[in-house]
Nucleic acid binder design. Structure first.
Length: 307
DNA sequence: AGCGGTCAAGTTGAT
DNA sequence: ATCAACTTGACCGCT
């Protein structure tokens, strides 16, 4: 860990300069192949991704990065309605499992926390049962990979409000009760920047025993009556393990007309002072990826020396 | 090799 | 009505 601080910074999904990549496949292309070729193409892609995951964790270990968020497309098209497959169907199944096992062991050895953040199509608030069913399937897929590689968090947003926040959150709670243990034990809810503030989500978190991922940038975009330090304290209490927070800086500054889009780097002033000495994981959502994490590590270390 | 159009999926709010 | 934004641009066909 850098500078003796107890918090750890996390890198999200991809690298900017480092030659570590994750691939995906397009459904329309795969669909045109016959069954054998479909599995072959997907297998090669998954093998590449699993190998990149090992390298990503290694990079984090070598660079004092304590957390890595894993791309949801690790197993591309795994939950596609027509193209879905089982890991055991893949020709490179054994190799892939070896690499996942290596990832898990490596992450544990170097104390690198692994997380997931499923995409915007995964939500538990929709009034449409079909959407909910697909979402639960998607969550089960994430949990399957999470078990294999040893990831402990799957972060979701509240989703839409549909003109009735209380009703939507009611559905979220009902649907959390439908989740299998592998999902539920990893699920966390994150405040977003236009619908659900921390204040909106705390009651759900409390009732359901689900931790809150506190995104301070979103909170600055969508304020409620709670201060940053209020939410920091309340969010920490929702975790029975190390809390997970998110941090980013606005691309055009706080006085720009779009404060929501993310900057390439983090302005250290945007890091809440109270976070600096907490034992928490802070995922860095910045376009420059590993360069942004590295720069923030250095800035924070420098500021700590000055102070 | 490089370029432009396209990509499975949901919802919101700006234009 | 269209589109960008959201946790991440990457893929594919054509030249």
């Amino acid at each position: 860990m850098y500078n003796g601080k107890r918090n750890r910074l996390g890198l999200c999904c991809i690298f900017r300069d480092e030659d570590i990549t994750f691939k995906s496949r397009q459904a329309t292309y795969i669909e045109r192949l016959d069954k054998e070729n479909r599995l072959e193409q997907i297998s090669v892609t998954v093998l590449h991704n699993a190998s990149s995951l090992v390298r990503a964790i290694d990079y984090c270990a070598m660079n004092g990065i304590g957390c890595f968020r894993v791309n949801s497309r690790m197993l591309p098209l795994k939950t596609h309605p027509k193209l879905h497959y089982a890991l055991t169907d893949l020709p490179d199944y054994a190799l892939i499992m070896d690499l996942f096992e290596t990832s898990r062991g490596f992450a544990r050895k170097h104390n690198i926390r692994l997380t997931f953040h499923p995409d915007q199509f995964t939500l538990l608030s929709s009034p449409r049962e079909q959407v909910t069913e697909k979402s639960i399937e998607e969550l089960i897929y994430h949990a399957e990979v999470a078990e294999l590689i040893g990831a402990d968090v799957i972060t979701l947003h509240g989703g839409g409000a549909y003109g009735d926040k209380a009703g939507a959150l009611g559905r979220v709670m009902e649907n959390i009760d439908r989740l299998p243990y592998a999902v539920r034990s990893r699920l966390a809810l994150e405040n977003d920047d236009r619908v659900y503030s921390p204040m909106d989500l705390f009651p759900v978190c409390e009732k359901m025993g689900i931790p809150l991922v506190y995104d301070v940038h979103h909170h600055r975009c969508l304020k409620d009556e709670l201060s940053i330090d209020d939410v920091t304290g309340l969010a920490r209490k929702t975790w029975d393990r190390e809390p997970l927070f998110h941090l980013s800086s606005p691309k055009y500054g706080w006085s720009g007309n779009d404060i929501r889009s993310h900057h390439d780097y983090i302005n250290p002033d945007d890091m809440p002072e109270s976070w600096k000495d907490l034992e928490v994981t802070i995922e860095i959502e910045a376009k420059a990826k590993e360069l942004a994490v590295s720069q923030l590590q250095q800035e924070l270390a420098r500021l700590a020396r000055v102070a």
